[in-house]
Amino acid sequence: MGLLLVENITHSYNPSHLFFKNKQSAAVLSDITLSIEEGQCLGLLGTSGAGKSTLGKVILGLEKPQKGQVIFQGIDLYDADKSTRRSIRRDLQVVFQDCYSSVNPRMNAEQIIGEPLQNYETLSLKEHYRTIGELLETVGLKADDRHKYPHQFSGGQLQRINIARAIALKPKLIVLDEAVSSLDMVNQTKILCLLNELKSSFGLSYLFITHDIKAAYSVSDTLAVMEKGEVAVLCEDKSQFFQLEHPSVRKMVESVLSEHPRYRSIPK
């Protein structure tokens, strides 16, 4: 039994807007079935507009799909009552692409990371203080950074704070929606290393949504490619991925930029 089971998800956005009444509803996800095992990472690749982020939202319980089920640890997410959903939320965390808009600019690092702890745990003040210090050190920041505000951090540092907030409650699954896409190369590599470390030390599972094949490859165990709202390719063994003959995979592999100027794919 997998940690997360997504069965036959179909979803579309209904344009109920005054001006667009006559337009047909646009299918965003059609008949998606996926599963994530405990301690595994699923890399979800695809071009922009393929429905990757919508699937992420459906899995997080933020967008009710029109058909299908999301089963997390044996419980149907959209069928559960309020208190069950609240306890599921604890094990299901998210890190978004835009690190600056996913934190409250009026809260300092301590308050940002402490919020989930306050909501779910009953810690004494001393324990609360100690836990936040530990979390900051886990993600490679200093415990003294707790008093800083978001604008005092760089993008890479702030993304670490977001990750610290996501792992504060020791969740089972973290949805990383383009979590490294807005960072520069050095920070990207650092964050990917951190994610790999956390995965092995806490036994976390990830759903890693990205359009960057290299980033997905370096953290994922299985890879899936989405195309026009469908899962076009599901590759259980990532080392086989580059040999796949599927046209969307080939297109993706071909647009990987070469690592050395001698092997350029763009002719002069």
Binding site: Q188, K214, V256, E259, H260
Partner: peptide
């Protein structure tokens, strides 16, 4: 980011 050492990279 290197695509695995066991995996021949594109270049």
């Amino acid at each position: 980011i290197q695509i695995g050492n066991n995996q021949p990279s594109k270049s």
